[in-house]
Design a protein around this nucleic acid. Sequence first.
RNA 1: GGCGCAUUCGUCUAGGGGUUUAGGACGCUGCCCUCUCAAGGCAGAGAUCACCGGUUCGAAUCCGGUAUGCGCUACCA
Length: 479
Amino acid sequence: MQGQVRVRFAPSPTGYPHLGNIRTALFNWLFARHTKGVFILRIEDTDQARKVEGATEIIMESLKWLGLDWDEGPYFQSQRLDMYRRYAEELVNEGKAYWCFCSSERLDKMRQDQMARKLPTGYDRHCRNLAQEQVQATKSSGTVPVVRFKSPLEGQTTVEDLIRGEVIFANSTLDDFVLLKSDGYPTYHLANIVDDHYMDISHVMRAEEWLSSTPRHVLLYRAFGWQPPQFAHLPMILGPDKSKLSKRHGATAINEYQDQGYLPEAMINFLALLGWSLDDKTEIMTVEEIVKNFSIERVSKTAAVFNIAKLEWMNGMYIRALGTQEFSDRSLPFVERALPPAVKRPIDAGYLEQIAPLVQERAKTLSEVPSLVDFFFTSTVEYDRELLWGKLDSKQASDILGKSIAALEKTLAWDAEQLEAAIRPLTEELGFKAGPFFGVLRVAITGRTASPPLFQTMEVLGRELCLARLAAASDMLKA
RNA sequence: GGCGCAUUCGUCUAGGGGUUUAGGACGCUGCCCUCUCAAGGCAGAGAUCACCGGUUCGAAUCCGGUAUGCGCUACCA
C-alpha cells in the first residue's frame, strides 16, 4: 500500500505514561485518523533493568480511556530478539559495525577522564579496529561483547524534519553507539530502526528529545540500505519550572488525571492544544473536529508549559456541557468511593440524579462532586455554631430559625417555589436582608456557607430532613 | 565542556514584510446578575514580539551574531 500513512506510538514500559507520552500518542493517532492511515502500538521493552511490572497494561488502559484505539499491535520488541541480533550481525559482517569488549569500568573511567579534561564525551573507538583473531580469542575467553556501529569519522548527516526543517550534524560529533547490548537485547536505536522499517512506518512523530539521536538513525537506515521514514519532532511539554515534565512536578501520569475526575474528552482537547492550534480563537473542539483539522504544519516548534489551571477550566466546560443523566452517571463512581463510610451503599443513583443539576455547574472535576453533595447523604450535618449567625448574632439567628420552622411546618407542598413563598416574606417581616437571613438557614441545612440555591436544595433534601436539621440548629443555639 | 533546538502578555497561543494602537484563551482585578458559592455577561490590567546589527520605502514577520532557556551527550528509552 504505497502512500498510506503508518504511524506508531512506541512507549517503553519503564513507568506509567505521563502527559508528554500521551500527547505524543495523541498526535500520532490524530495524524493517522486524519489521513485515514494506520496507528500502531509498539512496546519498546528492551531495557530489562528499568522495566516496570504492569506498565504495559496501564499504557493500554490509558489509551483506551482516551479513545486512542490502535489498528495494529501491541507488538513487543522483547519477542523479536532474534531479528535484531541477525541485523546487528549483518552489519558486523559487512564491516559497518563491530564487536566491542570494553568493560563498563573502562568506559566509566574513559568518560570521567574526558569530562575532567573538558573534552566531548563519547566512546573512544578502542575496539573499532581489532584484528579478526583478537575478536575470536576474546570471545572464546568468555568476555561477552556488544555490537557498536561504525560511525563515519567525517562528513555530515542531515536530518529532514517536518517541523524544524533541515538539521545538520557533523559526523565527528557522533560516536560509535551500541546496537546490541551484552544481554542480547538491542538498544533503542537498533530496535527502533529495524521495527520502523519492518512495520513500514511512514512518519516518525516523537518528542524533541529524540532529535539529537536522529542522525544516528539516518546513518543506520543508510547502512541497511533502507529508506528512512519522515521525521517530525514534537515540542516538549514542560513543568512550571520549564524543565522536562517528570514525576518531580507532581501528578504527571495520565491515570492520575482519570482518578482526579478529568473527562477524557476534555483531556484530549487540552492535550491537542499543547503544541497544536486550529486558528487564533477556537479552543473547545470535539475529537472529530480535531481529527478533521489536524495537520503537522500547524504543530508549533516551541516547548509548552503544562498549565493545570487551564485544564481545570476546560474540564469544567466539558462537565457543564454534559447531560444531567450523563453527569450523574459519571459522578457515581466518585461519589461511591469518596462519601463517608457511614453513608449506606450502594449509593442511590436516582437520588444522585436529582442532586446532579444542583452541583453540575459547580464542579471542575468529577472528584469534587462528593464534597459538593455529601450533606445530601448524611443524616446530620456538623459545623461550628458561630457559622450559624455569621455577621448577625445568635439571638437573631435563633429568631430566624424559629420563625422559619413555624412557617415551614405549615408548608404542605415541599417544592422550591412553595418554600421560597413561605420563607422570603419573613425576611422583610423580621427586617433582614435575604442574604444573611438565608445564610442562617443554609448553614443549618447544609452545614456550610456556600451551597447550591437554598430552596432547590431543600426540595431535594425533603421535608423531614430539613425540619430536623433546622430543629437541631435551633437547639444548638439554646444550649 | 561538545552538539542540537527554541525564544510573541505569568501560562497556552494567533500572526508567513504594510490590514496590528500585536488578536484570542486560561489566570488575575473590577462591575453586573444574585439567597451564598458557582455559572454567565461586561470591562480592565498584562507583550518596547529576548537583545544587537543588517536587508527593505517599511520587520514580530527575512538574514547574521549575542544572550538566555531547554534537550541530548549510557550496554535508558
